[in-house]
Nucleic acid binder design. Structure first.
Length: 575
DNA sequence: GCCGTTTTCGGCCCGACTGTTTTCAGTCG
C-alpha cells in the first residue's frame, strides 16, 4: 500500500500535478507505513481509515481500491501516459520529476538503459537545461546506481525472510526455518535470501509435498528452479530466495555450509582435511572410512574440528578460525548490552512522535536513558531548531525527564549541522547546555572527498561537538554517493577523543564493518544509535549491533553500553 | 489531496546551490 501511494505521488510529480495533492499522497504513504492499525482488516471501514491523520475521504477510497484490486485509479490513469520504469530514473542524483518528464517528452526516454544510450549518443545536450556537466553527472550516477540496486538492505531482506518462514512453518512437516547466507552473517546488504527448513516432512523419502507447498507461496512471481529438495524463486520486489528442505541429521552441516562466507568455508574445509576429515554440506566425515562424525548441529561440527562455535557475523576469514582454536574469540556485544540510544528526533523537527512518546517507547524497550537530538536550523526544510527554539526544547525535554521519575533519563541534545567552513550552525552558548551534541553533514552536493573530510576534521576541533555523526544524503529517499577519508577522520577522532556514531539505519551508508574494525584498532570510541524518526525505528537497533559484532566489537568498545552518567562523563572528556 | 474551520474554501515547512542561462528553473536536504 505504502509503495503504491508513494509511486503514485512520484508519477503525479512527473506529470506536473498539483504539489499539495502530491504531498497528500506522500503523507498518506507515510501514514500507512507508520500506523499500527491492521489496514486490510479495516479497509472497508472508511470512517476508521479516516481516523488516521493524513487519510481523508478520497484516500480512504484509494486504500479500499488497493485492498480490492491491488492498485488505485490515479496510478492506473498515470500509467497510461507514463511508464513505471521512469520512477527508477528519479533515483539518480540530479534527476527530479521535471527532468524525467522532459526526457520522456523530448526523447521518449523511460528507463535507465535508454538514458545511458542517449548520453552516449550525445543526444542529451540538445535538450534545454541539459549540458555537458549534467550528462557526466548522470553517467556517474547510473554506474553508482547499478552497483547498489541489485542488493537489498538487511532490514528488508529480514522482513521478507520472516514472512516466508512463517508461511513455511505453517506446513505440518516443517518445524524450523533458519536464514543462512549473508543475511545470517548480518551483512548490511544481501544479494539473495537463503532459507533452510527442516522437520519430519523434510526427510528424504517424503520431501516432495513440502516442496510443492513452498512453491505455492503467494508472493512468488517467478519460479527459477524446483529440484528434489530445493526451490528457488523471485518475489514481487525482485528479491531472489532459495529454500532448501533438509533432513535433521545434516541440518547443522547445511547451515554451516550455506551460511558461509566462502572464504571462511574454504579455510574450514582445509582445516578439516588436515585433521583427516572431509566437510561437506551434508556432514563432517572421516576421510578414511567415510563415517559421519558430526552433522546435526554447527556446534558439534566446530567442536569436532577443535574449534569453539563461531558466531555467523565473524565468519569472514578475518582470523576467527585461529581465535576459535585458541579459545580467544571475543565476547561480542549483544543487543541487550545497549542501555540507551542517544540520537532521536521528535515532532519538533522531522520526527513523527513527541518527546514523551519516544521516552515511553524507549522505556518499554528497557533502556535506561535516551537523548533527544532534533535537527538544527540549517535544515530549514524540516523546521530545524534555531538557538531560541533549541533552548525552549531543552526545557520541554527536562520536563519529560522529570515526568519519567527516574525510570528513564531523558537527556537533552541536538544534531547540529556542520557548515562548509567546519563551524556548527548553533551558538556555543546553546551547545554548552546540551548533554549530547552530534555533528552531522547534510549538504553534500558536489563536495569532493577532500572538502567533506576537511569539513568534518575542522568541526572536530569544536569542543562542544561530542559525537561525530554520519553524513547523510537526501533524507530517506536517496543514497548520495559520497566519500570520506575515514582513516584520516578516525585517527583525528582518536587524538581528540571525539566519539564516532554508528547508525543503525540500514538504508544509510554508514560506518561499514571495515571502518569499525579500523576504529577499534585506533581506539576510537563508538556509540550506536538508531537516528529514530519515529517509535518503530527504535527496533532497528539490532541491525546496528549486528554491524558492531561483525567488526568484533565487545561491550567495552561501545559507549552506550554504560549507564547515563558514565556515558556523559566520557563524552565530556573532550569538552 | 487533507485539514480546520469564520461549514466552504484557503492554506498547506523553505533557503541554498547549481548549471544553465542572460534572469531563473530545477534539485537538494
Amino acid at each position: 500500500m505504502c509503495r503504491l501511494l508513494a509511486e503514485t505521488a512520484d508519477l503525479l510529480e512527473i506529470s506536473g500535478g498539483d504539489s499539495f495533492r502530491i504531498r497528500s499522497y506522500r503523507n498518506a504513504a507515510e501514514a500507512v507505513e507508520s500506523t499500527t492499525l491492521e489496514l486490510s482488516a479495516i479497509a472497508e471501514d472508511a470512517k476508521k481509515l479516516q481516523e488516521i491523520p493524513g487519510i481523508g475521504k478520497a484516500m480512504a477510497a484509494n486504500l479500499l481500491a488497493i485492498e480490492r484490486t491491488g492498485t488505485l485509479p490515479m496510478r492506473e490513469e498515470l500509467l497510461t501516459k507514463y511508464k513505471a520504469t521512469m520512477l527508477e530514473l528519479l533515483r539518480l542524483p540530479g534527476m527530479g520529476p521535471k527532468s524525467v518528464n522532459s526526457l520522456w517528452q523530448a526523447l521518449g526516454i523511460a528507463d535507465i538503459d535508454a538514458l545511458e544510450a542517449a548520453i552516449d549518443a550525445g543526444k542529451l545536450e540538445t535538450l534545454p537545461r541539459f549540458g555537458k556537466k549534467q550528462a557526466e553527472k548522470l553517467k556517474k550516477g547510473i554506474a553508482e546506481y547499478r552497483r547498489n540496486s541489485s542488493r537489498f538492505h538487511i532490514d528488508e531482506a529480514e522482513l521478507a525472510a520472516e514472512k516466508i518462514a512463517a508461511y513455511l512453518t505453517s506446513f505440518p512437516g516443517i518445524n524450523s526455518v533458519t536464514p543462512a547466507g549473508s543475511l545470517r552473517r548480518g551483512r548490511e546488504t544481501v544479494g539473495d535470501i537463503d532459507l533452510l527448513a527442516t522437520g519430519p516432512g523434510c526427510e528424504e523419502n517424503c520431501v516432495s509435498s513440502a516442496v510443492e507447498y513452498a512453491v505455492a507461496y503467494p508472493p512468488i512471481v517467478d519460479i527459477l528452479a524446483k529440484g528434489q529438495n530445493k526451490v528457488s524463486f523471485r518475489l514481487r520486489n525482485g528479491l531472489q530466495v532459495d529454500v532448501r528442505l533438509l533432513p535433521r541429521a545434516s541440518y547443522g552441516a547445511a547451515l554451516q555450509y550455506f551460511t558461509g562466507s566462502k572464504t571462511h568455508n574454504v579455510a574450514l574445509r582445509q582445516r578439516a582435511l588436515k585433521q583427516g576429515y572431509t566437510l561437506s554440506e551434508y556432514a563432517l566425515a572421516r576421510l578414511d572410512d567415510g563415517s559421519v562424525v558430526a552433522g546435526a548441529t554447527e556446534v558439534e561440527i566446530y567442536a569436532a574440528l577443535g574449534l569453539d562455535w563461531i558466531a555467523p557475523e565473524l565468519r569472514e576469514n578475518y582470523g576467527e578460525l585461529e581465535a576459535a582454536a585458541e579459545h580467544r574469540l571475543p565476547e561480542l556485544i549483544e543487543p541487550t548490552d545497549i542501555r540507551g540510544d542517544v540520537h532521536m528526533h521528535t515532532d519538533a523537527s522531522d520526527g513523527r512522535n513527541t518527546i514523551r512518546a519516544m521516552a515511553d517507547a524507549a522505556l518499554a524497550r528497557g533502556y535506561e536513558y535516551i537523548a533527544i537530538t532534533d535537527h538544527s536550523k540549517n535544515l530549514a526544510m524540516i523546521n530545524g531548531l534555531d538557538d531560541r527554539r533549541a533552548l525552549e526544547h531543552i526545557v520541554r525535554i527536562k520536563q519529560v525527564d522529570s515526568e519519567m521519575e527516574g525510570r528513564l533519563r531523558v537527556l537533552s541534545g541536538i544534531e547540529v549541522d556542520i557548515l562548509n567552513n567546519g563551524e556548527l550552525d548553533l551558538s556555543n552558548d546553546v551547545l554548552a547546555q546540551m548533554d549530547v551534541v552530534i555533528g552531522s553533514v547534510h549538504s553534500l552536493f558536489n563536495q569532493t572527498e577532500e572538502q567533506m573530510t576537511e569539513r568534518m576534521l575542522r568541526a572536530m576541533e569544536n569542543p562542544y561537538l561530542r559525537i561525530l555523526g554520519h553524513p547523510t544524503g537526501r533524507l530517506l529517499l536517496r543514497r548520495e554517493p559520497y566519500k570520506l577519508n575515514l582513516p584520516k577522520i578516525l585517527r583525528r577522532a582518536a587524538e581528540l577523543g571525539v566519539t564516532m556514531e554508528h547508525n543503525a539505519y540500514p538504508d544509510r551508508l554508514d560506518l561499514c564493518d571495515r571502518d569499525l574494525r579500523l576504529a577499534k584498532e585506533m581506539g576510537v570510541r563508538i556509540v550506536v544509535n538508531t537516528d529514530a524518526h519515529q517509535i518503530s525505528h527504535l527496533e532497528k537497533m539490532r541491525f546496528g549491533v549486528l554491524q558492531l559484532r561483525r567488526a568484533w566489537l565487545t561491550k567495552e568498545d561501545v559507549l552506550n553500553t554504560r549507564d547515563a552518567s558514565s556515558l556523559l562523563a566520557a563524552l565530556r572528556t573532550n569538552a
